Computed example of a mutant assay.
Amino acid sequence: MRIVVTGGFGFLGGRVAAALLARRALGGEAIDRLVLVDQVVRPESPVWADPLVEVVHGALADRLDEVFADPVDLVIHLAAAVSAACEADFDLGMSANVDTTRALLEAARTQSASGGRVPRLVFSSSVAVYGGDPALPLPATVSESTLPLPRTSYGTQKLICEQLIADCTRRGFVDGRVARLMTVTVRPGKPNAAASGFLSGIVREPLAGVPAICPVRPGLRVALSSPRRAVEGLLRLAEVERGTGPGRLEGALPVNLPALSVTVADMLTTLRRVAGSQVADLVTIAPDPTTESIVGSWPAAVDHTRAAGLGLHPDPDFESIIRAYLDDKPS
């Protein structure tokens, strides 16, 4: 089995790669090659030296001939421009998210048309595809049957890609599976350009003894997932067989990965309980209307019945997310 992970040295990509290498197989098939594609590669990464790993360095759209030089069985497509960056630069978001995904689908279609195996494609979409409209407000809890009405360019781009993948799946070009991710926290390392990045920063920075700004009101409720649960969900969608019955993927609807619904105030209270007041007091509330308008447009509670049928469940509480971060982060 030859597996491609786009954004393979990114936050989730690196974790997906490490999980695949630990397993050495997926869905009962041995992994013969793991191709990691990224514009920024990290030779210091533990996965770099693994004999199964092949590194493709560069923009995905420019390296598809190399990626598909040998037959591809599975693509886990994580490469993307993130929310606030897409809102600030429309052309960046369209190029990195829509145009690149379209090019990837064309490469997969070419493989299928030549008589090769139809590639399986797992696409990391986002809860940002949802949004409230004055004429049609969001329900208290969204499900896969809730009409997506994105209120950001990022959410719109993700929804466009979802629809392209669904149509290519219907036509037999790919076997597409769409995972709608919640905000994944706590992310280690430096902040990125995601509007939701503060949801990691208000934990990560204080735990490192660094002040952090919370740009939303504490009462804002958000839908979260730990990195462990996000990776678990992506790999489950990668391996599950289609069909009816327990533990199988029915239909072509996206899957909302499970979410923990919590307020920012609850997050800060939990941080105080786990790490103490000296740490929690490093967080300053300084509302920013732009950030809150983006993050506040996303649903805070998600029906994950479809994911539960695949054996996926949310994190039990925010304390478990903090403790998982403390366990996983480098010493």
Rank of each mutant, 00 (worst) to 15 (best):
I321A: 03
F173R: 12
T263L: 10
V72K: 14
A223F: 09
G28L: 09
R204E: 01
R170L: 15
P46W: 11
G10M: 03
T290C: 06
V122F: 08
P289L: 10
D65P: 03
D62F: 08
A308R: 15
V37M: 05
P316G: 01
F90N: 04
F68I: 12
P134S: 01
I321D: 00
D99C: 13
P289R: 08
G197D: 12
G245R: 11
G28W: 14
C161F: 14
E29W: 08
D175I: 06
T284D: 13
L253V: 02
I31D: 02
A107C: 09
S153L: 15
R242H: 07
L326I: 10
G131K: 11
V174Q: 03
A301V: 06
S114G: 07
P254E: 03
A19N: 05
Y325C: 09
P330C: 00
G176W: 11
L138Y: 03
V127E: 12
S200T: 04
P139E: 04
Y130H: 13
L64H: 05
L36F: 10
G7A: 05
L104W: 07
F198D: 02
E162K: 12
V53G: 00
I321E: 02
A259H: 12
D99S: 14
C214P: 03
V142E: 01
T156A: 11
S125F: 05
P258F: 06
F11G: 04
G201V: 04
L260K: 08
D317H: 12
L138K: 08
E29T: 08
L249A: 01
R229D: 03
T141Q: 15
V122D: 02
I294F: 15
A223I: 09
R187L: 08
T101M: 15
G245T: 02
L20Q: 10
A59Q: 07
R273F: 04
E241C: 06
P46I: 05
A166M: 14
G27Q: 14
E250T: 14
A166D: 10
G251V: 04
A308V: 13
D73N: 15
I165H: 04
D32L: 14
P215K: 15
F318M: 12
A193L: 11
I160S: 09
V56Y: 03
A81I: 08
V216H: 11
F11Y: 06
S261F: 05
A230C: 05
L159E: 01
R15A: 11
K190Q: 08
L149G: 00
T146M: 14
L104E: 01
P71D: 15
A85Y: 11
R236H: 02
V216R: 11
A166K: 09
T6G: 03
A194I: 15
